[in-house]
Design a protein around this nucleic acid. Structure first.
Lengths: 160, 160
DNA sequence: TGTTAATAGTCCGATTACGTACTATTATGG
DNA sequence: CCATAATAGTACGTAATCGGACTATTAACA
């Protein structure tokens, strides 16, 4: 069936969120497996900690597919990977299907709200409405909207 | 490690999004497995279609745990389930940990935006910042924040 | 009546991910 | 020097999910 954590390219293999994260992260700078795990954990405040049993085989798989490559093996058996040109292309291809990912994003959000209930805080509801209005803005009003939001952000920061 | 699709109660077993969806859906009205699959597929526009190989064993597992119960077996072997009191309690308990689910929601969103590219519109980035500030507001400032957001919403609506 | 499609669920091999023990290599500090 | 902690990765049994073939029972239609 279809999973919330997989994203496909039209011609090609679906990729898990972890695989995509790896490609994306390595596209910014080379890293080791350990680094990647640390990065995910940090970025997510500990809410997503893929297991080593998942990450390392996946790295080897991606390497086998020539999407990433070992550029250095250092101390403590540290293996540093970088993304290949082919890997970048794969990432770009999947990004091009950005519609799907954003739809899944919205879907996930709706599911959570559905099951767990809406924002208990009314501010969250307002935020959602704001987002909706933004989505529906006619093209060309971006600059104006940004000004409104910047003002809003300033005001909110002053509360704290 | 920690998965994006699992939500825990402090004392008790983590539950997958599918399990929670089942409990939640059955809490609104009894349904068969086939009904549940149809509902998910419809609600998600086809973006999430759990496999039968997953759903049916899960239903049986939840039944074995007395979180759901068979209330009727009808034509074509149709088995209608309802949530039990224990199931409702489990759902309520997990809901009580709403913080985690909303954090995962935000996290998922951030990951998608990170990998697939942010809002092409800069306003989206500001919106995220606004949300962050909201999350970090000290308790008691809710009313004030709501006022700021309401003003913001009005301003935005005036643009369109 | 017979055929086809839809409803409803079982079964199972393959794939993915988890949880964690284990191994090895430094780095740090007493 | 030794003990401990951190870095870095391997290995593997268990759990969850997929993908889809298969079975059975209606329901609809010619």
């Amino acid at each position: 069936m279809t999973s919330l954590l997989k994203f496909g390219s039209r011609q090609g293999k679906e990729r898990s969120l972890l695989a995509l994260f790896i490609l994306h992260s390595l596209s910014t700078s080379p890293k080791s497996g350990y680094d990647l795990l640390a990065e995910i954990k940090e970025k997510t405040g500990g809410l997503w900690v893929p297991s080593k049993g998942t990450l390392y085989p996946l790295l080897h798989q991606l390497e086998g597919e020539h999407l990433i490559a070992v550029i250095e093996t250092g101390k403590r058996a540290k293996t540093t990977f970088e993304v290949t040109e082919s890997g970048r292309e794969t990432l770009d291809t999947v990004k091009t299907q950005g519609k799907e990912s954003h739809r899944k994003m919205a879907l996930y959000k709706n599911l959570i709200l559905d099951i767990f209930g809406g924002a208990k805080v009314n501010a969250k509801g307002l935020l959602f409405e704001i987002k909706t209005v933004l989505d529906e803005l006619p093209p060309g009003n971006e600059h104006h909207a940004v000004q409104v939001l910047e003002q809003c952000l300033d005001d909110l920061k002053r509360i704290g």
